[in-house]
Every structure is written in C-alpha cells, then in structure tokens.
Design a protein around this nucleic acid. Structure first.
Lengths: 298, 298
DNA sequence: GGCGGTTACGTAAGGCGTAAGAATT
DNA sequence: AATTCTTACGCCTTACGTAACCGCC
C-alpha cells in the first residue's frame, strides 16, 4: 500500500508539473522524489505522470488518481482535527431520549440549540416513556433523557430544564370557553374532567391532584389517559374538560380551546434532563452544559 | 502526519480490542503495535484507546476517529483500483459535444450505453454547433462529437453512428395530412416548403436538395431555418410543409403531423461521431469502441 | 551546454523483533 | 501466578542526500 507521503508528493508534482519545484516545495531534493513517484506508480500499478525529458504531464490515470489523492489527504487532516475536538464535546454523538409530550415542546429547543451551538454533534433521537428512559440511561443505550421529575436515583444525575404553565382545555362550545374571562381552577369543581393516568402519567396526575387539593376543588374524573393528544381528543368530543401543559398549544388541534387558567400556580409543570453520572461521552457533557445555561438564561 | 499503516493498525486494534490478537492479524508482534498506536495518538493529539490493564476500550474520540480511518482506508484502496482501470477506459471522463438535433435522438442512446456498459465513465455534455465542435475537438476541449457528415479533416477521425429516415412534417389540417395514403416526395412539387438554412444546417440542406433533384421536384421555399424545432413551429402555423429526421417524433409537438414519406431513399440522414486522432483519453477509446459496435449491431 | 529528469552509493534513522518490566486479576 | 500492555535494546531495512549520469532543447 502507498503512504500519505506518496500522495502529498504526487499532488505536489501534479500541481507543479516539475519535479525540481515540487521537491523544493516538499523541502527535499528531487532524486528521492523521483523514486517516490516511481514507487507510487509501481504500487498503484499504472503510469500517473508522463515525463518527456522537458515536460511533465498527467496521464488520464494520473488525473483520476489526483482527485482521489486530494480527497484522501483532506480527509486525513479532517480526521485528526475532528478527533481532537471530541474531548471538548464539540464533535460526537448524543443519543437523546424524549417522551411524546416533549416532542412538541422542549425537544425543538434542544434541536435548535444543538444546531446552532454544537453543529458537529449528531443527535440520535429515541421516543421512550420515562421508565424505559431510566433503564436505557443506566444501560448506556441512552446518553440523555428529557423527562418529568422525579428522575433522581442511584447513578443518575438530573438538572431542571424548563417550567411551563398549565392551560385549560375546553370543548369549543363549552360555557367556560364562551365566557369572557379566563377560567379559574375553582370553575372545575364538579366538572366532568379528563384526567391523566396515575400509572402511566404519574407526574401530571400528581401535579393536577395537588393543584385541586390546594384549591379544594373536586372535578368529576370521567377518564384516565396517558397522553396529552388523547386527552385533547376526548375534550374535543365533549367528554369533559382538562388541564394540559401550555406547549400543547403547538399541537394546533382545532375544536379545542386552550385558555390560561388561574389558581394552579405560575408554572407548575417541570421538565428536567437526566443522564448517567459516570457517562464519559464528552459531547454529552457539552450538551448538558449548553442546556443548563440555556435553562438558566430562561 | 500519521500514515495509512497507523490507520490499519488502529482499525485492527479497535476491532479486536486486544493488542495481541490485533498484532497477530497484522502479522507482527505486539510491542511495535503498541508503539504505533502511541505514535498515532501523539500525532492525532488525543487518546484513542483506553487501556485498563485487562481490557482495551475505544474512547469517544477513538470512535469518531475509527469511522474516519475506515473511510480513508477504503478510499485509498478504491483510488488505486480506479486508477488501474483508467488505461482500459473503464474509468474516466469523456467530454461529449452534440448538436441540438441529436439531443432528442441519438444522444439518449449514447447516455444509455454509457450508463449500462461504462458506468464509471463520466460524461460531460456540451451542446455546440458542428463547426464549434470541430474546433473544440482539435483544441482538446472536446473528446467526442456527435455530428453530421462530412466531418473528416486533418487530425480528425470519424465513424458512422446511425442512419434514419426522413418524415414529412405537415400542418394538422393540410390536405396531405388528411389524405389516406402517406405522402411521396413528388407531392411537394410547388408546395410551400420550410427549408433548412444552407449555411447553418448545411447537411440537411444538401440531403434535401439532393432528394428533390433526384425526384425532379421543386418545392417553393418560404423560409430557411437552422433548427428542427423552429421548422416544426412554422409548419404548425401553416407557413408550409417540411421534411425532418424521424427522431423529431420524440419532440412530441402537437399540431404537426409527422408521416412516413416515400421517394426520398430509405434512411438518408446520417449521424457520425468525430474525435481527434491523437487524443489519448482511454475512456474515449472505450466509448468509441462501444458506440462502434452498437452502430454495427444496429 | 544546461535544464531536468534518473541511477548509484554511502549514511542516518525509523521500526521491527526479542527480551525484560510492570500492573492487574 | 498468569495475562497483557509497555519499555529497553540490538539489528536491519528504508529512504534521505550527494554525486554521477543521460537525453533533449
């Protein structure tokens, strides 16, 4: 196999079309350069240059090989540069877990941040429920997860990412939707209510339960569901009202009115990121730093 | 700069995750392999492997570098293979000139033949009138031209490519178009006729002139034009009738009827290829051979 | 004759293998 | 104690530079 020195030598000669000048450019004398090119030609198995005493010209094979040689040399330089940038986290891959609910909210923020600030970091996206994310993080199948609290635990580190308000989800023809003022949590007392599932959507179940307890209201739960978009579908068809994270606005579902709601606290819904404490992926560290400062900046 | 041997060594170790086995695979002992990897890491400027006495693991930087290393090695092999195939003409570039008229006829045949039989030959297409092609062929700006005869001359070689019939081009409501039988050249006697330009389309002008002379008919020339599609446009608007190469059918122009015509010879329109006799482009030689045998096969 | 490439030859260095070393299970 | 990577050392091959050589404007 030829070496990269052979290739740089060949490119120099091909560009200068003059062994002497090429040798000077390579800071060597020309006899060894001649030998190198001969060796390269022997190795490749084809004449690359046509020497006619006074002039040097590329053969057709030489032209083809020159293009490849340039690409190989460029790739080689890039390879070293890329590798050097890995420990700083600028280059690499992060496997990111997210739940269905984050897909249309904070995930966009993460993607935009990575595109702008860590353009050489590849994100591999995996939609997974929170429990599966915990296992995958610990197993090393996932680098980072976008999850609802609480996600602490042995071996896992977490950091808050964002808080968001709850909004009331009302059928378009509901009296609270038609009323001029925004609904209050107390308006839901005794109201048919599409509730989160305590098992599969424990976080939202607890946030809402606490809000109702604090306000001393008791909606009438008509269904328990895990996913925001399913809840909204039932609200639309008039089975009841609900409270969903504000990001649900981005779903753009028609037939459901989403309105600010008072009495449930400012921004009760929390989102955090979680990762294995011993994960040594530098790109993960860089991404965690990036998201941490983005969260701090608001 | 690291060498390709460094890369093969690294790939072997990265795949085996064991210096001893990797060394065996490279048919060497492991001490020099260790040194090579150390030198490579020093060169790249980053730790690629994590040696923990009992196990060898890739670092994140190592994973990134491994992908690049594999690509570089593959490219290097391919480069040699490609270059070796150039003298046989299997790999390379042919700059091909063609006239507007061949664009919708024989050019397609050439493109299909190259795609099927010389898939690694790149074609660079240039539309040029015949005189410009002659100059470009001699100047080395063109490797091969698709031209009308006669294109011989000092330094140029030619070979016939194809013959094709002439068809009558008639306005849709013309009496010859409505008649049950195909027109004969004698039907054009005294008929308003859209003729080729003797200067810019000399070949067609002469083919038609000879056909008319042989049949002793004298159409009434109403226009002289260079390009088939312009002629057809005038025919469509009723300025006259014309005779065009059968390939014009592929233009799919509506409002013009193209019908077989008798009395003008079987396939009077010839197409040939021309190239500079001293052109040493092996891909050109391969293409000429290919087209020659395709023409012989019909 | 001189420019521009190749061949010949002596020398220096880089890299191999063998052997010894160190650390971990 | 055994395994496995690293360091030490002697030798050989590879490849440089200098010098001589050859062929064509």
């Amino acid at each position: 196999m030829f070496s990269l020195e052979h290739l740089t030598s060949f490119v120099a000669v091909a560009e200068e079309l003059h062994f002497g000048r090429a040798a000077a450019r390579l800071t060597m004398t020309q006899p060894p350069l001649s030998r190198r090119i001969q060796a390269l030609e022997h190795e490749v198995g084809v004449e690359l240059l046509e020497r006619s005493r006074r002039t040097v010209r590329l053969t057709p094979a030489g032209r083809v090989f020159l293009a490849d040689a340039r690409r190989i040399l460029e790739l080689s330089e890039q390879a070293a540069l890329s590798a050097r940038r890995v420990p700083g986290g600028e280059v690499g891959t992060v496997t990111l877990g997210f739940t269905a609910a984050t897909a249309y909210s904070y995930l966009e923020t993460v993607l935009a941040a990575v595109r702008d600030r860590l353009p050489h970091v590849d994100l591999v996206l995996r939609e997974m429920v929170s429990s599966a994310q915990r296992a995958a993080l610990l197993a090393g199948d996932l680098d980072l997860g976008l999850v609802r609290p609480p996600m602490g635990g042995p071996g896992l580190a977490t950091a808050p990412l964002a808080r968001e308000p709850l909004v009331a989800a009302l059928p378009a023809d509901h009296r609270l939707a038609r009323r001029g003022t925004d609904p209050d949590v107390r308006d839901f007392d005794g109201e048919p209510f599409v509730m989160y599932s305590p098992a599969e959507a424990r976080y939202f179940y607890e946030v809402l339960s606490r809000a109702f307890r604090d306000a001393r209201v008791t909606p009438r739960y008509v269904q328990h569901l895990a996913q925001v978009h399913t809840i909204l579908t039932l609200v639309r068809s008039g089975h009841g009202v609900s409270l969903v994270p504000a990001a649900a606005t981005r779903l753009g579902l028609t037939g459901v009115v989403l309105r600010p709601v008072t009495g449930v606290g400012e921004e009760p819904v929390e989102l955090e990121m979680a990762w294995r404490a011993t994960n040594d992926n530098p790109a993960l560290a860089a991404l965690v730093d990036l998201l941490r400062s983005a969260a701090a900046a608001g």
